[in-house]
Every structure is written in C-alpha cells, then in structure tokens.
Write a protein that binds this DNA or RNA. Structure first.
Lengths: 258, 258
DNA sequence: CCATAACATTCATTTAAATCAAAGCCTTCA
DNA sequence: TGAAGGCTTTGATTTAAATGAATGTTATGG
C-alpha cells in the first residue's frame, strides 16, 4: 500500500553499463525503422536495467514524460478507485507499448508495475514526438499503437459488459495465446505471469470464480492447468466458449480485425 | 437488423448547397487552428447535411476513410457481438470526435448511428494526416484526442468492472452534466437524447435497473426526471454517489472533446 | 387525430457470481 | 529446513441485478 515506487529516474541516470545502446529493430519491436532513422531513434531510447518483480515504472499521477516498450518480462497497468481498490487495466508483454494513456495529459492516469523481472525501453515523449514529426514511418507506428490501444479497450468494455464469467476467462486465455503466438512463442503452452487474483481483477471477477472456471475448463479438457503453467488443449473449443467471432486479424501490415 | 445504412458517400457527393464551406474555429471545435492553417483545414472538411434520427454514419466493417466531429445532435457508437446483440461504446455530442477507433486499421471496428437529427463534419483521414504533418498544432490536437479516448475508455472499464448499478447511473449523469457544462450548456438541466435502453446497454445494466434507479434518485431528491428531461437537483450529492474522486481536470490546454 | 408501436415503469422471481469460510499448497528466506 | 504468510482451491450461503410478466405512457405516421 504505502510502497515506495521506483520512478523512472532510477534508471535515467543509472550507471553506464546499464545504459548500453539498445539494439532496435527486433522483429517484435513496435517502433522499427531503417538505417539512419533507426539510428536517430536509438539515440533517444533508454534501456532500463532489469527491474525486479513489484517495481513501479510509474505511478498514477506521476508527470507523464515517456512511453515505454517491454523488452522482457511483464507489466500490469492499473488505476486506483476512490475507495482505494485497484482495477487492472492491462497486461503488457515483450514488444508491447506502455503508457499511451498518458498522451495528451500531464499526468499518468494509471500506475505500471512489473509482475516479474522486467526490462523496458524508455522513449522520452518530447523527443519521440520531435523525431516522429521528421520520420513519417515512426509517426504512423505511434498513431497505430494508439489506435490499437483504443480497440483493445473497446473489446474489454464489451467483455466486461456482456460476457459471462466463462466467456471472460476463455477470451483471456485465447487473447494471451494469440499474443504469444504473434511474438513467436508457443500458442498452446505458456506461463501465466499474473496471479489468479490479478486475472480476476482484470476480468471483473472474484478470484474464486477464476479458480473454479480453470478447474471446470480442465475437467472439460479445454486446458491443462498446473499452477501458473497453462496448456491449451483445444484452442478451437476454447475460442468457441469465448463467444468471439473468428478474427480476421490485426497484425499484418494493415488488414481488418473483426 | 437488416437496416440499410446511409454511408458517408451519401453526402460526399451531395448537392452543393449542403456542402457550403463550414466555418471552423467555433469555441467547442476540437480542431481549431489560426488563419492560413485554419483555411487549409477548412478545405478538406465536408459538412454533412442534417442526418435524420437512425442514420448510420458508418457501419462496423466499413472501410475506414474519415473521422468526424459532431456539429449538432448526438451519435452513438456500438459494436455487435457474435450473437448479434449490440454493445454501445460511446455517445458523442457537439464538438466531440467520432471514429478514432478506426485509426490504424482498414475497417471501422464500430458502427455510428444518429440518435436525433445530427450534422457532422467529415475529415478525410488521408488528407487530415497530410495536413497534420505540416501543422504541428493540428497533429497535437489529433494525438490528444486519441489520448482522451483512451482515458475515457479506461474510466469506462473501471465503471463496468467495479461500480454498482447506482454508481454507474450517477457517474453517467455527472459525466453528461460535465460535458454539457464544458460546451456552455446548463450543467443541471438537459435532455437525454438516448433511450433508457441505450443508457442501460452502455452502462452494462438492464433497462429496468436504469428505470428503477432513476425513480430512486428522484425520491432521494438527487434529480428530477420527466421522461427524457433531467434536472440534477444536487450535483454534489449525485457525484458523491458516483464514487468518483474529485477530478483535477482534463480540460484546459488543447482540444477537448469529452 | 387516432391507432399502433415503441418506450418506460413496476413488481415477483430467478440466477450468476460474490461473499463467507475453511483448508491445502507452494514459496521463501530466516 | 521448516515456519510463516501468501496464494489457490473448494464448498456453502448470500445478494445485486437480471429476467419474466404485466401495465402504463409517450411518440409516430397514416
């Protein structure tokens, strides 16, 4: 509760070793440019040292200075309600962009916290903006990331307002599967870096409900659960349960997504 | 269900009279520029004729070509679930920006429909983008609008996942009040352009629940309801019920739309 | 201006998921 | 290594809001 956050400054001016120029242009990087442009981008990026589990990247109310991409590990973002309870608004995996919700306002509307040892890339927003106005491709990538965030949240609204507990959990697992697959990991076997509590919080469900549904899905041979390890036995069937329409995809270049 | 939408093309090439150059720069316009820049913006804008109630501005799945701002009237946006039920994702009043959710994808992820006779301004996205890359102020306004949309949706996620029915309705009324106030209308007396059904759908509640809460709030002297006419008797108390923290504000700065 | 339909309210009953309660199971670090 | 606390599971009970059913009210267009 009264936890001391580690602000971003903690690695802004960290020792030189930690600040080695990160290599940009990995396949899953959200901001990928070529040659001289990539070089310009790399000059404004800061790579964080490994941040251990439970570290805050920023707190709700902190001045908005930068956006981040995840290099390794997992983050969650959350808001704190008036009564002090936390509402998780997103999980972020390698290659994903964090803190877009701060754009256009002075202060972060959410907090961001690591769920495990995590490293990020920090893009000071003012510099990123300046560069984006010179490099159209970067501008497009940035704008598209915001669009994606908007659409992800729309999907979440739909989930929270119309889906049953089973559909929510199924949707959650299918989405995770898809995200891992897109980054080149297994679509069927993975590790949940968040607790049952965090899953429930995110999905608008009680922990107990999540737990019960996991065991139910296991009995129905949709998944195998062993603690945090998940194996999706039938992605087809699980998707069926999720109640979503077959997605014609968001990823390649442009394409439609619903 | 099998309703024929009126696509944007319906006024793209409408008669000349309907296409009179709109005057930009009204106080509540989200994209406000000065002198020569404003002139450039006005050259790409199309003003729609009055669209009567129930008209679709675009349908989910339509090619994304333009964004819009509301000049007069009200719009709702909604997605249709797999089972064919609609989920309203937003209401849009004069000065607000519609269709940002299509940015970065080929097709609109939502449909937009008028709730009453409505006129809009249409900004063809490609041209708007081209202009934005020349006019930093416009770029900023556009980006900020997207940021605001993201934050509005975060708020909505919180509402849907953590708030009680009473809190949701109170929040809804307070937000409306605030938006009307910001546009120079009365913060306490206004007309709901959407049905109880649409309010319920948006808030993740059954119609009956909305109805019951309206009457309950009336008995508690928080509001006076007479059909679609609302008077907020005690904004203070209503805000109290909404469970939100006093907002230290989003508005002053650039283009607000919500 | 009336007829018809769409919208809104009210009440009774049901239900999905929350809460309450308790026990087992992993971490972890002293 | 083993005790402590935090997670996870399971079951019993409660509850907020949905659903079902009916009536009243307000628009709408012929």
């Amino acid at each position: 509760m009264a936890e001391k956050p580690i602000h971003t400054e903690s690695f802004h001016n960290a020792n030189g070793a930690q600040r080695a120029r990160p290599s940009i242009g990995l396949s899953s990087q959200p901001f990928a440019l070529e040659s001289t442009d990539a070089d310009k981008l790399s000059q404004i990026v800061e790579a964080s040292p490994p941040l251990k589990k439970g570290t805050h990247l920023f707190l709700q109310g902190d001045p908005f200075m930068s956006i981040f991409t995840v290099r390794a590990g997992t983050l969650k973002t959350y808001t704190v309600t008036n009564e002090g309870e936390e509402q998780i608004t997103g999980f972020y995996f390698p290659g994903e962009v964090v803190a877009l919700s701060g754009i256009g306002t002075d202060h972060h509307p959410v907090s961001a916290k690591t769920l495990e040892t995590t490293t990020v890339l920090e893009y000071p927003y003012i510099q990123l903006e300046a560069l984006a106005s010179q490099v159209p491709q970067l501008r497009t990538q940035l704008t598209n990331s915001m669009g994606k965030e908007i659409r992800a949240e729309l999907q979440m609204m739909l989930l929270l307002s119309k889906k049953t507990a089973e559909q929510r959990v199924a949707t959650f697992l299918c989405k995770l599967s898809d995200r891992f697959k897109q980054r080149g990991y297994s679509a069927t076997v993975f590790r949940l870096s968040m607790s049952r509590n965090e899953i429930g919080n995110y999905l608008g469900l009680a922990v107990e409900t999540v737990s019960r549904i996991f065991t139910r899905f296991q009995k129905q041979q949709l998944i195998n659960v062993e603690g945090k390890e998940i194996e999706i036995v039938s992605l087809e069937d699980l998707f069926q349960v999720s109640g979503d329409a077959k997605v014609c995809d968001e990823s390649p270049g442009s394409a439609d997504y619903r």
